[in-house]
Design a protein around this nucleic acid. Structure first.
Lengths: 198, 198
DNA sequence: CTTGAACACATACGCATTGTATGTCAACCG
DNA sequence: CGGTTGACATACAATGCGTATGTGTTCAAG
């Protein structure tokens, strides 16, 4: 077996573990997920886990990193579909709200992640979503579209609002209807950032 | 011993357990807190715990209920110090941000609470903070101060923004400075709810 | 006054789960 | 070809939760 093959196999076991972990963490929550079951479902044992990720938290970190990257990619697409920077920003935020409706993202990234790993802004990964939003706001401020505020602060506020809205929508009886009013209120709220109201 | 005494003693043991739990959960987090140590610190055993609260989650519920009540009380005071309903609302929200800086509230109510018990809006307790904010917004809408949006949605968004701001501030190197810019951005953001910008 | 039922809590046990320590087998290297 | 390293499996020890059971005290009925 060639040297490259070993590295590729290692990546494959990591991928298998992460895949199994995404399912387990999403369905049962981080605390209730058993590493024995999880690794068995991936056709491995806990040995592979501790070898590759150090501990249970390490696996969670890897899972979140992957989910975070997927979220950024989808939000970016939503943003780039719009014509103006401001509309792009709005679309990106609303995309976050809708993304957070997926149980996988909600349970793993929004609920268990902060509880187990601490504040998202301190993650090593480190929360590409927030960075993306911050940069978008910085650009909007530079162009005079948005009032001059601390971009990172605004990003944290907006992201927090979006995530909380998603939690609410997901737990509602009629998610589509609630989503509509959440998005409506969200548009209203973020218009406060605008230099000149539309 | 009189009949009333027994009930009072029972309340006292509940109070002792909740007091110990507040410390343990705040300092070590819910998952890492040992029920054996916790109850021993209160001068009791796990027997008392399971008799009074059912299980570990039950104790967490009780702790959160108490913290939630304290938060509402403090926020209400901040609101009533202001002259107009809108300024009162602002003061209430900012009070939430500052309250969330306390490790006890942050760790227990904002991080572990949602992760263990699920979305706050579904709590039986049931998140008096949110109800308070919702009612305030309803009043502001009725008086024409705030644009007509779904009050609950707006409350969730605003609360989410505030809580996230607090997480960010608490983890920052220079909390006072970051708090200032967070509050600044927050004022800017919520002005979007106003019917007529000030 | 005695007896027994209810209650608040303590003790004892079983089960599950995590992290580590050790073992194994194949791949590389001198 | 023997030794070492690396990736993973297995075995072990420790801890913690929930429950089942025990104990002493209070109240009520006979």
């Amino acid at each position: 077996m060639a040297a490259g093959q070993r590295a590729r196999m290692m990546e494959e076991t990591r991928a298998k573990l992460i895949r199994a972990a995404r399912r387990a963490f999403a369905e049962q929550g981080y605390a209730a997920a058993s590493m024995d079951e999880l690794t068995a479902a991936a056709g491995l044992t806990r040995g592979a886990l501790y070898h590759n990720f150090g501990d249970k938290k390490g696996l969670l970190r890897a899972v979140i990193e992957q989910l975070d990257a997927e979220m950024v990619a989808k939000a970016r697409i939503a943003r780039e579909r719009e014509d103006t920077p401001w509309l792009g920003f709005l679309a990106e935020c609303i995309a976050y709200i809708e993304l957070a409706l997926e149980p996988e993202i909600q349970r793993v990234v929004l609920l268990d992640g902060p509880a187990v790993l601490g504040d998202p802004s301190q993650w090593p990964g480190q929360n590409a979503c927030l960075q993306e939003t911050t940069r978008a706001i910085e650009a909007l401020i530079a162009s005079g579209t948005v009032r001059p505020v601390d971009a990172e602060a605004a990003a944290r506020l907006v992201n927090g609002a979006a995530l909380n809205a998603a939690l609410w929508v997901a737990a509602a009886e009629d998610p589509p209807a609630v989503l509509a009013s959440a998005v409506d209120a969200f548009r209203c709220l973020v218009s406060g950032l605008l230099a000149a109201r539309d």
